[in-house]
Design a protein around this nucleic acid. Structure first.
Lengths: 311, 311
DNA sequence: AACCACATATTAATAAAACCGATAGATTAT
DNA sequence: ATAATCTATCGGTTTTATTAATATGTGGTT
């Protein structure tokens, strides 16, 4: 039967929580447009949400006097009850949130980020929340984004920008690559004498680099545009540590994220070669799934990321 | 900020009442498919609603053991709270419904229905609900459906089927047209002698009919198909009473809905001419707007329509 | 072990809805 | 008057809900 026969238990609701939210905002602001701003909505969306609620029940919630909306008697009754319902709903949302296993967090990161940044954040996270159980997965950007789309990972920390309407990509921090050589390399003296390293120096040198396709290599190639095809690439290795060893052994000069080199520079094992004419910065990004609610755990992780990235 | 910064009052809800309904049905039935049946939903819709709720909060509500879904601890907590929330929502829906001005009902009907059926129903409605305030509007089917689409009318009672995805068209009752003449017309004797009226009789007679485009005329033309173009249409009038007067004055024979002729037949003012070889039945329909909630008043009106149509 | 009956999950396509930008129409303030 | 501001509405786009069909998995039966 197509009219409401009020049969059994499962009575379908003819309004939505969203409609109530919008109605309450309008009632509170006494204005559709202000409510729309409050809710980050277009004025037309708010207007038609209200219209639909009123039409659905053949009900006038507001008296339209001039351009102002004035809650009428019916509207006031509905308002208080709707407020209670929404409060109730919010309470349910809270329990829903608390039910989520906030201790278990699955983070994906690219190699550089994972080994040199994520572990620090992870350590701090565990220090602050001893019961946290964080799984860190190292993979390339494509794999990580795929796993986030598939709800296999909660957060991703990646290097490359990527476009996907299902993903929320947000800037985290910038990173600087550094060109470096061994202390016994000819260019080391130049650097020690505060002489600038020229493009000619870069072209003369032999390079030890990360493999093509890695984020670090991509950033390097972007920085070297114009002279890239004339560079001499002696070796390609997949790990930063291996590259550093190769450079120490004077198999060539290298280019890696500065953060992976800090210790080596401090210990004098490797020498930083400033290349001011080349822009060696790149950006790191967070990615999360747009559809997934951001749990307490994720929020904490992201807050840590931001706070540690400034220090 | 794209993560949950928990700022001010208006906290958007990340679940819908619909999702809760579906979750509860699944929990109650311990089965997605049975719940789907209960809710008049496809199994896949129920499944993905549940999936979305779980994913949204990164939560497991059920343990998937074999093919059975077993509520787990988290699920049980959520269930009771969700039940409360839904009960609360249902209460709000009730007040929303009671707020609607059930006494004010706007009914649209075509001429025949409006003058001979709707007035009776209206009278009975007022008898049962003395405070009812019913507005009856007579118009053709197109106008009525347009006004219902525009929320200017609550219910329509019409003759022609019509297809519109926004309208809920539902069968009400069947109606019988009757061919009739004055007692002094030659065919009256034939009828009195229980002789059948032949198609030849219909072709020889002069007709007094409703105007083209009216539902009655359309039904007549459908009934007369095959001989329609050879009929002699002497007069076209817009009102049933005028047609009856014309037939009494022997300007021709007529064809109108039987219900409009009952009294005239009983009084002997007009004579019924049975035409068994022609199908003179037609159907009456209710129409309501699909989007509009069916209020108490509409429900009562429709119930009355159904109950009075059998008597 | 092969098969059937049945249950959930997934996919691809479609129907419905939420939403936005632009704009009309109406009202207050200047 | 005129500008500024508000609500309502229209046309179009994006999201979401839903379905039919299908894959996948499970338990019972031969």
């Amino acid at each position: 039967m197509w009219f409401n026969a009020r049969t059994r238990r499962p009575a379908p609701m003819h309004f939505t929580l969203r409609q109530l939210e919008i109605f309450l905002a309008i009632a509170h602001q006494q204005s559709v447009s202000k409510a729309a701003v409050e809710l980050n909505l277009s004025q037309s969306a708010a207007s038609s949400a209200l219209k639909e609620l009123e039409q659905q029940f053949d009900l006038q919630l507001f008296d339209r006097v001039g351009k102002r909306l004035q809650l009428n008697a019916q509207g006031r009754t509905v308002r208080t009850k709707a407020e209670h319902l929404l409060a109730h709903a919010e309470a349910l949302e809270q329990t829903l949130l608390q039910q989520t296993d906030a201790r278990h967090l699955k983070v994906g990161a690219t190699l550089t980020i994972g080994n040199y940044l994520a572990v620090d954040i992870m350590a701090e996270m565990v220090r602050q929340h001893p019961d946290a159980n964080i799984h860190l997965e190292i993979a390339n950007t494509a794999t990580i984004s795929q796993k986030i789309l598939n709800y296999e990972l909660d957060v991703g920390l990646v290097e490359g920008e990527l476009l996907n309407s299902e993903l929320d990509v947000s800037h985290w921090r910038s990173d600087e690559l550094a060109v470096f050589c061994s202390p016994t390399h000819p260019l080391a003296k130049k650097a020690a004498a505060s002489q600038p390293i020229t493009d000619q120096d870069l072209l003369t040198a032999r390079w030890v680099l990360r493999e093509p396709g890695s984020g670090t290599r991509q950033a390097f190639e972007r920085a070297m545009q114009g002279i890239l095809s004339d560079l001499t690439i002696a070796h390609e290795l997949q790990h930063t540590e291996a590259i550093q060893q190769a450079v120490v052994a004077n198999l060539g000069i290298g280019c890696l994220s500065h953060i992976t080199l800090k210790k080596a520079f401090a210990q004098g094992r490797l020498v930083h070669l400033p290349v001011p004419q080349r822009d060696l910065t790149r950006q790191f990004y967070f990615i999360v799934h747009k559809q997934k609610f951001v749990s307490q755990g994720i929020t904490q992780w992201l807050a840590l990321c931001r706070s540690l990235s400034v220090g």
